[in-house]
Design a protein around this nucleic acid. Structure first.
Length: 285
DNA sequence: TCAATTTGACCCCT
DNA sequence: AGGGGTCAAATTGA
């Protein structure tokens, strides 16, 4: 995919982590009430999370890199390159190209199960649905809407037969699009709410997503209707729930970031330990 | 009007 | 041979 060497990617990842550590340091000052001149907490949180995201992207795009988190590596199948769909179909007529493709054999996959169709921050377009033999529920096929930009990421979503509440999502390929590069974070700090949210609104969010925030474009029509009936509009799965301990008026509190987004395998982070996380990561240098 | 979804057809792979 | 993955025309909805 990329033509950068492993060491270059490592350097870039380290740069990202250093940037994140600086932001975490400033954030700590803000939390401690010493950060009058510092950027807003919201901005800092954004920078910290961007650092994690960019670092993970860099490392995931480079399976040869040595400092993958072991637990993360397990999520990836053998990263053989997929066969290109640009077979001899290219030269044939439009009609003749129907169904003409090369089936992927093995490539990077990730599996995720969640109680609701998950919003991973990417925009997906459904391109197929298939009844699967011996399966109660059909399998839905999605690809990245930025495929015209060469993004080859696809995913399959299917309800789990044994537990229909659960949706199993299998991701194939990596996003090469920049869609998730600029998440907008909304930090709801209203004292009335017992929980605080870091909302990662993607700038392409649609009306229907707002109506049913639990879902992304992954389930734009049929499932969104379903969502209205079944899924309580409590949280967006695209949101990071911060447990109620966080306050910005005094001492550091225990804060947990959690996410069900498949791109965020780093599910829970103790906020006061964020700085230590960066320190640990950078120790791999 | 345009973008997204649906769905039948088609082809690859086991 | 048949299941599974993808294509693309038709349909739907904003």
């Amino acid at each position: 995919m990329d033509k950068l060497g492993g060491s270059t990617i490592r350097m870039k990842a380290i740069e990202e982590l250093l940037r994140g550590r600086d932001s975490a340091t400033q954030l700590r000052s803000v939390i401690n009430g010493n950060g009058e001149d510092s950027p807003s907490a919201e901005k800092l949180v954004k920078e910290v999370l961007m650092s994690f995201t960019n670092s993970l992207l860099l490392l995931n795009d480079n399976p040869t890199s040595e400092f993958h988190d072991a637990s993360n590596v397990q999520l990836w199948a053998s990263p053989k390159l997929e066969d290109s769909q640009e077979s001899n179909c290219k030269n044939s007529t439009v009609k003749a190209r129907r169904g003409c493709y090369k089936r992927r054999r093995t490539e990077q996959t990730r599996e995720k199960e969640s109680e609701a169709p998950i919003d991973d921050g990417h925009q997906w377009r459904k391109y197929g649905q298939k009844e699967i033999l011996n399966a109660k529920f059909p399998r839905n096929y999605f690809r990245c809407t930025h495929r015209d930009q060469g993004c080859q990421a696809t995913k399959q979503v299917q309800r789990v037969q044994e537990d229909p509440i659960l949706y199993k999502t299998i991701y194939y390929g990596e996003h090469s699009c920049k869609n998730m590069g600029n998440p907008e974070i909304i930090l709801d700090m209203s004292p009335s709410s017992s929980s605080k949210f870091l909302s990662f609104n993607n700038s392409f969010s649609t009306q229907s997503q707002q109506e049913c925030p639990f879902l992304s474009s992954s389930f734009p029509s049929s499932v969104k209707r379903e969502c209205k009936e079944e899924i309580p509009p409590s949280t967006s799965s695209n949101d990071y729930l911060i447990s109620s301990g966080l306050t910005f008026d005094g001492s550091p509190r225990h804060v947990t970031l959690s996410s069900s987004t498949p791109d965020s395998e780093y599910k829970a982070v103790d906020f006061p330990d964020l700085y230590d996380v960066f320190e640990d990561l950078l120790e791999f240098r």
